[in-house]
Design a protein around this nucleic acid. Sequence first.
DNA 1: AGTGGGAACCTAACGGCGTTAGGCAGCCGT
DNA 2: ACGGCTGCCTAACGCCGTTAGGTTCCCACT
Lengths: 233, 233
Amino acid sequence: MVSADNGSARSPRAGAAAKAPAITREALAAAGLAVLRREGLDALSMRKVAAELGVRAASLYYHVQDKEQLLDLLADSVVWDARKLATTGDWEHCLREAAHAYYRHLHANRDAARLMAGRRTPGPNLLYVLDVMLSRLHQAGFSDAVAARATLTISTYVQGYVLQEQVPKAPHREPDAASELSAACRTTTAAQYPNIMSLIAVKKSGDTKELFSFGVERLIDGLRAQLPGGPEN
Amino acid sequence: MVSADNGSARSPRAGAAAKAPAITREALAAAGLAVLRREGLDALSMRKVAAELGVRAASLYYHVQDKEQLLDLLADSVVWDARKLATTGDWEHCLREAAHAYYRHLHANRDAARLMAGRRTPGPNLLYVLDVMLSRLHQAGFSDAVAARATLTISTYVQGYVLQEQVPKAPHREPDAASELSAACRTTTAAQYPNIMSLIAVKKSGDTKELFSFGVERLIDGLRAQLPGGPEN
DNA sequence: AGTGGGAACCTAACGGCGTTAGGCAGCCGT
DNA sequence: ACGGCTGCCTAACGCCGTTAGGTTCCCACT
């Protein structure tokens, strides 16, 4: 579930393990994802991840330098499955499928977008996906500059969209008082900003994927005009 | 700097203040923004905001229910200036200017995008901006459905873009060891993902606004094709 | 066979965090 | 004069990330 190469990670001397490690980097990521799914990003603490593994918090620092590094690990794990993406068909199809696959994987993990938002570097799995998209666009005839901008723009849009979709869930307060108050607030809103209601209508339409697709299709439409020749492969 | 109507906020009995309040909601927002600018979102705590006002942390809870509510306040303050936006010229011009204005205001405040990312509701100032854009698009001939989707898509893109741009700053570690390690990591990256370098080239080109504009223009291009008749107004 | 060393966990503790409870000064209308 | 309210205060709770300093146990080497 995690990247194959642990790269610069601390590892036991090759071929000689002193003690069977109960906690691997993969197990750490899995435990983190479990806590994330159950309690959300705000409640994810070192202590809870450790408890998920039947271990105390301090032990995690043997495998990970920081909480930040643990979050990096989780962020990359989320994108892991997105590596399988289509490279057949025309560039529009590939781009669309990649965007939707990325969307699905972020959408499937609670608070995934907010998790990604805090990372300093994209992580190897995401880098791989970007790399593939980039080469596909380049192959389709886009210039280096346009292909790079297109790739970044699409991935930015996907992350931004899921971010707005995955509103952080509160533990929930009193439902009666809250609904009454929000109802009053809503009428005020309607009075002050008459057009906003249609936004709410779109957001409430249930099919969250439809709005997402709208943006992707508009971007693809806009990108098509950037092809040097006519549309090819 | 904050919304004019405090709405449902607790307020002294109209026309009778028991004691001159040293802390207003505006001062609270200003202090929060000051801490945000100086130390970043991760280091923003109730205690520090309170200290900025010459006050202890517990006192803030008289003016604000939660830290969440304080962040809501800050988030809305950031968008405050974006209310002044153009409604003259054709819809493309309006949309472009609104997007750039929104971008500028997020860009100008440290960690502003990550701040917005956590909010549950858009806040009145942002709602106003969305409302104006919506009415302008509607006036230009877009259908209700398309105008709503376009507005949401653009605002999503802007927030997503700034989010990736405003990478959280670490307090800074050892510069020597860090640069050496990152250099090694970079060559590994280049070997594994050959196309990624062009992405880095685009990101490093300095003019961050250019990449942002690319996305906006592509979206506008894509939206133009959604107009029922030809381009009008 | 004995021993050194390192891997992988532990307990204890630090300071900072968000938040709540309860107290006290000063100004208000009566 | 005085009760009540506003607007601050101090003290404390429990949780957090992180560090310091063990302890145990297996492996490699002599």
